[in-house]
């Protein structure tokens, strides 16, 4: 690419654990090439230097949990040509969306001596509930190769290769023996989007659903299988209620087993 000027990249954090931003730092070998290809204008996890907006690309980690978050994400959206959300928090509300199924005030009073000092929303919601998002990168945390692929595709003006098919596709491509069929272990893979690199099944563990719902997931059929194989409703509910509890298909399925 013949760059006229380097695109300005900003990385923003909302309610999150920083794990996804770390995936960017974890790119080690490729990080220098990224730093070479873009101007890192705002990335507090990596540098204190801050360049003012507007930004060509904003990567947004974390979910919206406070009134201030809403104001901030709107401002960021206005300053960003392309806005990409990264990780389960930003794309589905994250593990903290478990609060959506309970009364958040009960938590606050249980934890804080002076609950009145806490200003928080009743729910943890994904970024796209508040502003338009150009691309969503799934995962808890995201996969660094997928992140590089998205940055890369953007810089080269092509479509990112981030398929929305099931984790099972990854199992079969890796030659991983299905734990559900060969051991009867309940697995979320058939309703979960691929992308992690087959982390759990390749070490003989079932998929936890970190990458959220795949395209058109048939959660009811899978939940039926779980039930037929001895999982009681609370277990089935909890299966669908983790990092991507707030993703619509998982939320609906978990609520069907309350």
């Amino acid at each position: 690419m013949v760059a006229v000027r380097k695109p300005k990249l900003a990385v923003w954090k909302f309610s999150s654990c920083d794990g996804c931003q770390l995936s960017l730092l974890d790119c080690e070998d490729e990080l220098l090439a990224v730093a070479d290809a873009v101007e890192i204008a705002y990335f507090l996890e990596a540098t204190r230097a801050q360049v003012k907006g507007p930004y060509d690309v904003s990567l947004v980690e974390g979910s919206v949990t406070t009134p201030e978050d809403i104001r901030r994400i709107r401002k960021i959206r206005k300053q960003s040509k392309v806005l990409i959300t990264i990780g389960a928090c930003a794309t589905a509300g994250g593990i903290q969306a478990l609060r959506n199924f309970n009364r958040v005030y009960d938590f606050i009073t249980a934890v804080y001596a002076e609950p009145d000092y806490i200003e928080t929303l009743a729910t943890s919601t994904p970024i796209q509930d508040h502003v338009p998002v150009d691309f969503e990168l799934r995962g808890c945390p995201i996969n660094k190769y997928q992140l590089l692929e998205v940055v890369n595709a953007l810089l080269n003006g092509r479509r990112p290769v981030v398929p929305a098919h099931s984790q099972c596709v990854e199992c079969k491509a890796h030659g991983t023996v299905c734990v559900m069929v060969s051991q009867g272990t309940p697995c979320l893979g058939p309703v979960t989007q691929a992308g992690c690199g087959n982390l759990c099944p390749s070490v003989n563990r079932a998929c936890y659903g970190c990458f959220g719902p795949k395209e058109m997931p048939n959660t009811a059929s899978l939940a039926g299988w779980f039930g037929d194989h001895g999982l009681g409703p609370p277990h089935v509910r909890d299966f669908f209620r983790s990092f991507n509890a707030g993703a619509e298909p998982f939320r609906r399925e978990s609520e069907a087993h309350e």
């Binding site: 080269n156 290769v161 099972c168 048939n218």
Partner: peptide, 24 residues
């Protein structure tokens, strides 16, 4: 489930997709 396991294990299913990639 639309998971695609059947086509992957089928010894005759041959379908493929192309993926084009670039370096940075």
């Amino acid at each position: 489930l639309g998971c695609g396991n059947c086509t992957a294990v089928c010894p005759t299913c041959f379908c493929t997709s192309m993926e084009d990639t670039t370096d940075l």
